[in-house]
Design a protein around this nucleic acid. Structure first.
Lengths: 224, 224, 224, 224
DNA sequence: CATGAATGAGGTTTCATTCAT
DNA sequence: CATGAATGAAACCTCATTCAT
């Protein structure tokens, strides 16, 4: 993220200047702190100063790295969600095996890398506060929803093309795949709603079961 | 929408001054306006003055009827959610028929009277902002979650006692019933997340399908 | 500025409620305080809270009457400068006498009602800070410069049409009239530049002398 | 623009390292950049970092050469205005010819070396912001106003002593000489006030005309 | 009862200045 | 010498809540 102009002298001086190391680490630390707080309290209720404090810097420093709170939020989304789609797209390009396995793999990987992490809270945040912050909502749609849908769409097309899946309206079928993910994300970040905080839903089982249901629904050969 | 406590006396004295009737209607109008705005923008982002304006009164009047914003919110919850449990409990006490039908009826009635109304936005609100307003979260748990769970628990016990349902851990099974409701409420109030606002999920079908799935899961006689 | 809804009851109660009287007086008090401070310190250096304090109210009250600092400034300009042009235009429409006398009258009246008052500081302010606040500069151009030029232009045209003035390029001649005004305004508000604050320039003499010079310059009959 | 104090040694050692020359040029480059920005935006609105950037150095470097923004401003004034008085004083000491010609020369030279340059913006700046920065105002009075007045005063005394000028109160007459200069400086840096930015006033003509007017006014022999 | 003027704590953002490297 | 990361005081503006009328 930062152009390391001192590459040569760094070689000569392997113990990089502490200050400079911090400088490169700062954006990441701030983004991490912001992710925590945004997920915990929402966008509006998170105070810039608190993010800075959690990252161990002062108020002013935050604005040294991010023009304003919205840009900070966008960076959080980019770092934790949209930035990963290129990697995922590549994985799926080289995937060999049935499309059913591909979808299973997709769901599992999503759970491991997003659903079960704090990043899933960002989705909930957008659902709650999106209408109050149209800029953020639009950014999220462009950077996360659109590529996410595209990824799922590709899988569905692959299945249909190969004859594994019945030919359905892909644009609608997408939601059958995404709905369980959405639900899990919401559920996870709404535990305060459960009395006594009982953990009742086993997410991995839920994902597995829902995946099979969806697959059966999509299958070209109707289950007997 | 507001329980008219003086209904009878109104009948006896039909010429009651219009102004006085307005006076009695005030809290209800404020609650209705508040419901709209809370659901639309969330608790924190809703300004007291806007609620008052939508109810056609001045800012000061709002605080005449409700000590503060939190009390207003509690009134909204009471009026739209918790206040209805007594009525529902009664309905279910006199219900005759199989427990499966009872559950089907429960789900349908919930959808008609809550799920499809603005009141369902309150649940989403609590999920989003609950952690920022512990008092409200606690109030909601006591007034809505607890009686809601109790209602479902009673249905499940009835089914188990009658042999219709397999004997399961009721405290956990509750969530199987509630989860689809929760999901629908969240989904409904998060449409901005969908690209192009495609309406994809038919709520009534969703409820029906999920109900049958749950019933099959609960059934004492394993589906062949 | 405020619709007095209580006209009748005011009649019955001639000692208007103190609070309400204040309410109607507030904008004016705030504008007066703002004029003082803007002229004294400039736009950027004047703090909103200080304006409020000088008007005897708190920070928040200022923003009750003016959306933001720029709107406050615009109100100050409107109240003290642009609002007066309609009155002036009328005066000049009914003016009888030579155009030379009309111009003399114009200059004298300008000095009495603007040049010698704090309002003249606004012009200096715009000259200094206009480029930092393009919105304000544009507003001032539309609301003050344009009608001011129009007024002078009309006088010049009248003189030319009547044969008193030589036919000149009016758009340029305007500046011959305005320049002495501008200079006086700047001079007045820049006294700190004079050592020991010696008052050296007698404004009324200056205006009179400059007026005659301009008149001689405009005259149709060349001075012998 | 910067007085190269090491000029001679540079000649003796032409191969002096470029970096060192830069080092000596720094203050001058910073002062030049600061002049530009101060004149363009004013003192308060000019950001230290922007000055540094325009001079091609980092923020820290600026404060290496100038203790703070005020000292930087003083250096700008010294370099562009007060530093020149010694040179001018010398020129006038050796001036031969009538005092009228001396005054004409003075005005012309002032226009060429100050009035028409960016330095003239400093005067406008002080007029606008002087009251917000008393230290700077005082500095300017001591370093520019005082020697400027002294210069003019000497010319007037010379004329009176030689019988060319009528014996007048010199302290007041000074302003007759200075006023046109001030006006031009203000006018020049306030173009945004003109509608459509019409250039109307030809400065050199203005200076020439005003000079003659002043001379006639000062002359010992009343114009016929 | 009803009003709406007034308050002031609290949040975001800017920028001169310092100082470790 | 030079850098630029870090600081924190200060300014603008919002809004829940109070209270005189």
């Amino acid at each position: 993220m930062v152009t390391p102009r001192r590459f040569l002298s760094d070689k000569l001086c392997p113990v990089r200047a502490k200050r400079e190391r911090r400088k490169e680490a700062r954006p990441g630390e701030l983004i991490a702190a912001a992710l925590d707080l945004f997920v915990e309290k929402g966008f509006a209720a998170t105070r810039a100063e608190e993010v800075a404090a959690r990252a161990g810097v002062s108020k002013g420093t935050l604005f040294l790295y991010f023009k304003n709170k919205e840009e900070l939020f966008k960076a959080v989304v980019t770092e934790n969600l949209s930035g990963r789609f290129t990697e995922w797209n590549k994985e799926f390009e080289v995937f060999e095996g049935s499309t059913s396995d591909m979808l299973r793999y997709c769901m599992r990987v999503w759970w491991e890398r997003v659903g079960s992490t704090k990043a899933s809270g960002l989705t909930k945040l957008l659902m709650s506060e999106g209408s109050n912050f149209p800029t953020l909502a639009e950014f999220y749609r462009q950077e996360v929803v659109r590529p996410g849908h595209a990824l799922v769409r590709r899988i569905l097309h692959r299945g249909i093309d190969s004859g594994e899946f019945a030919p359905v309206d892909v644009d609608h079928a997408i939601y059958a795949v995404i709905a369980p993910m959405m639900f899990l994300m919401l559920w996870q970040h709404s535990t305060p709603m459960c009395i006594d905080g009982q953990a009742v839903l086993d997410p991995e089982t839920f994902i597995a079961v829902q995946t099979e249901i969806v697959l059966r629904g999509l299958s070209a050969r109707p289950s007997a």
